[in-house]
Write a protein that binds this DNA or RNA. Sequence first.
DNA 1: GATGAAAAATCTGTGAC
DNA 2: GTCACAGATTTTTCATC
Lengths: 152, 152
Amino acid sequence: MLTDEISRRILRHMQAEPDLPMAELAQRAGLAAGTCARRLEKMREAGIYQGVQAIINWAALGYSVEVSLRVTLDKTQSRAFDEFIEEARKIPEVSEIHTFLGRVDVRLAVLARDMAHYQEIYKTRILTLPHIADIEALMQVAAIKMSEDLPL
Amino acid sequence: MLTDEISRRILRHMQAEPDLPMAELAQRAGLAAGTCARRLEKMREAGIYQGVQAIINWAALGYSVEVSLRVTLDKTQSRAFDEFIEEARKIPEVSEIHTFLGRVDVRLAVLARDMAHYQEIYKTRILTLPHIADIEALMQVAAIKMSEDLPL
DNA sequence: GATGAAAAATCTGTGAC
DNA sequence: GTCACAGATTTTTCATC
């Protein structure tokens, strides 16, 4: 029931238009409003639907620089991974942290107002993180697609 | 007014707890409910606040494989970039597309049910995209942090 | 032009069927 | 799963600064 076709349909519409009123969402999924709310609540309890996230245009707020950093850690120390993540989480300008299998261990997304600001964050907050063996940086030009109609 | 301290406060709380009732949000920002709603609406019109996005636990829905692909394009053709993006957008399993300055031109995030499924998507949908010069793949282990308390 | 308070319109979730 | 209603919530109005 939690992952059947009807529930997937709810998630699909939820994904496409997240701030639709419940009644509208229900109609598009072919359900009554109450039923839809009940299913969504079940999915939330099961951790399938994890709520919503605000999308903010950082450039409009003066954060025009976004940099993607790929970090390779010094794996000679067993706690390197956890310690690095723990410290990286504390940096407000780090907006995303993803971990990987392979040569690269972690990817960080960093937000900054301009290049001078980025340089400052990089020197004082990033390079002081523990256990870094190597860093590669890419400057982001644009976010083209972010989860519109994923496979459900 | 659109980017003053009060508006930033609204966004800050919006970001931390996106599905808070308007009355609560207003109280935390030190405003009346109506005032808060009007400011948020203004910010939406100005494109500063771009609404909300549903967060879905893909692993719970059977999509346990997430791969990050870095693509370098064949820049000998001037339309390469646009044509590549246009085709990549059409693939439902591609959940994110970001573009960059530098050696790597595009990063794609790909969702798949398992390794066999990923292999199929990779061969039939990704490698058939136009103007690819080089691809590097990393398998994602976890998304640790996604926009909690960013600098506002 | 922006604000707070309160009324009006709308929406959500619970319970009966 | 649907329907309807009570309670909560958003949105508009209006007087005020």
